[in-house]
Design a protein around this nucleic acid. Structure first.
Lengths: 328, 328
DNA sequence: CCATTTTTTGCAAGCGCGTGCAAAATTGCA
DNA sequence: TGCAATTTTGCACGCGCTTGCAAAAAATGG
């Protein structure tokens, strides 16, 4: 434990404890001379302000909850990781909370979130804004990919899935592809709407036709199963679109190794996300890229806006782009 | 913010604030009748103890830092994730801290760790025990895979790499493999010793010979590069051992798609970790499995021991096993 | 039924720090 | 040099909770 307190530093520096507190507080009024004395004493004693006490005293909090779903590879890989780093760099304390299928609303979360939060970043469809809002004492929660109608009291970062999907269908159209299979996200997820429904709309605009579809759960295995089921029900289409890369890779492996098909000759399989593996030559998976970096940037921008201006501003929204990567 | 405090609950329940505190503290002395009154009032008011204040008052902390390296796929995938869940289930608050190449010792970490920790779980070779110990107020830090000589004041969870490697070399030996390439971990990492050096010892015990080696950094790309370099320098050996799966997959892809080789016919490539992708048919990668679950179990066991007994007990050590998975 | 033991309760003093306020020190300007 | 304006400083209270201690209540037993 860091047992050295501000009092000890104050004594050693020959100043009051307030002075110590002030030298460690941004834009507080301390003379350069005092600050120097304090800093010196602090260095000699190895003092570091105790964030817990500070938080309690000031009524603020630098803790940011990252609320995500349990299966890390089901959502965007590395999102949490990059967020973690970015928040830390801002002096905020990221605190990752995973909710799983057992998530039963506010109660569960309240059990886990035992501390006042600066804000929260929510990347879990199942979580309602109202479950989180009470804990965020500085800024409203930031909800990711919540294309559903949402509480007005939250900030939102959305992904413009539609553009990437449009690019993809144009590409397929130009290649003279006519028929499509689809492996969707879970019906309850926001990705179901933005990706699967988005695809249907895009198809409607071209002369391509959806032949059949299956619901997946974003896992590699569900991609495998989906391909099996789809191919047991009818002839091969020109292409298969999966709502994320993991399922696309599962489908591709099953197409190749179980059904002996050649990809993309016999069927073109397309994913969504552009995870690192998508570019590996074993898969060389065409996909719709959504940049984790863009998302993190958007989030950090919102946080900085909330820090700068008073938080009475109304909802802040950001949309990050997508683009189709053909991988010829 | 959760503005309802213990005082308000106390007033409503017609008891003292101590009573409220005690009903929310494990094995504190409260009568059932009082507890009930308090619980009722708390429910009605939506009260939840403020962990920050509690922590400050009790001088304890339920925060556990997970200190890991920056590149999430370089270390064991999902370790952090599983730890997160396990700790949360115990009522502890996991706090992930990534240190990267810029890590410059204690100062950096001290900047990040701004709060007293219950304990820390360190999965980053670069971090010294002495950088962490001062922050852990309840239990000593738990160092993972630190096969180096270590500070005696920490607990340790090691992986028994040697056994898996021994199994693998036996297998290769039985297959009549004689010659080996090696892609090591970074020389500075603990895995360099346990895996690469371990392999050398195992080879020495059989009649196999190390032909050539390259140093990698655990990334897929470094596996690709390593294979290129190795194959530019001499004839193909019977097999290639990589210090983790990611590099093995990189090597395999380059072997197949750049050098037109057939794996495992022309060369057998073996990894380490058993990540999910290793079992995907595109790779079907023989590997030495180390179970993340085993590691998490070992860690949680140590934590529980430290909670139960007084922490004056000397170093606790656990070793988790490995095993070779041939994937015929 | 009372004396004794055990359990429960409330009091009050902190935990380490932030911050409003008024006093002290410094500065500016005539 | 003298006085007002400004900055710096220290005091002291409080953030929401835990906990040792002593008093009150309940339980025990003869």
């Amino acid at each position: 434990m860091q047992r050295v307190t501000a009092d000890q530093v104050a004594e050693r520096a020959g100043v009051s404890r307030s002075a110590v507190s002030r030298t460690f507080t941004k834009d507080a009024s301390v003379s350069a001379r005092t600050a120097e004395k304090v800093l010196k004493a602090a260095r000699e004693l190895g003092y570091r302000p105790n964030a817990i006490a500070s938080s309690l005293a000031s009524g603020s909090s630098n803790i940011v909850a990252l609320i995500t779903i349990s299966k890390p590879d089901f959502r965007r890989p590395y999102l949490i990781h990059h967020l973690n780093n970015a928040l830390q760099k801002m002096g905020l304390v990221p605190y990752t909370i995973c909710v799983d299928e057992n998530y039963r609303g506010a109660e569960t979360l309240a059990q886990i979130i035992q501390m006042p939060l600066n804000t929260a970043i929510v990347s879990a469809d199942a979580v309602n804004a109202s479950d989180i809002i009470p804990f965020c004492i500085h800024s409203p929660p930031i909800m990711l990919n919540s294309n559903f109608s949402q509480d007005e009291r939250v900030d939102v970062v959305n992904v413009d899935d539609a553009t990437g999907i449009q690019q993809m269908t144009s590409y397929l159209h130009n290649r003279n592809h006519k028929t499509v299979w689809l492996v969707t996200a879970r019906r309850s997820s926001s990705a179901f709407h933005s990706r699967s429904v988005g695809l249907l709309e895009a198809l409607a605009r071209s002369d391509m036709k959806l032949i059949d579809k299956e619901e997946g759960d974003f896992s590699y295995e569900s991609g495998q199963e989906a391909f099996d089921k789809l191919s047991s029900r009818g002839p091969l289409p020109d292409c298969l679109f999966c709502a994320n890369d993991a399922m696309a890779m599962g489908a591709m492996d099953t197409a190749r190794f179980v059904h002996g098909l050649s990809v993309p000759k016999d069927i073109r399989i397309i994913g969504f996300d552009d995870v690192p593996q998508a570019s590996w030559p074993s898969y060389n998976l065409p996909t719709i890229k959504q940049s984790v970096v863009d998302t993190v940037d958007a989030i950090m921008e919102i946080i900085q806006l909330r820090v700068a201006k008073s938080s009475d501003e109304s909802r802040i929204t950001r949309t990050v782009p997508t683009s189709f990567i053909a991988r010829e």
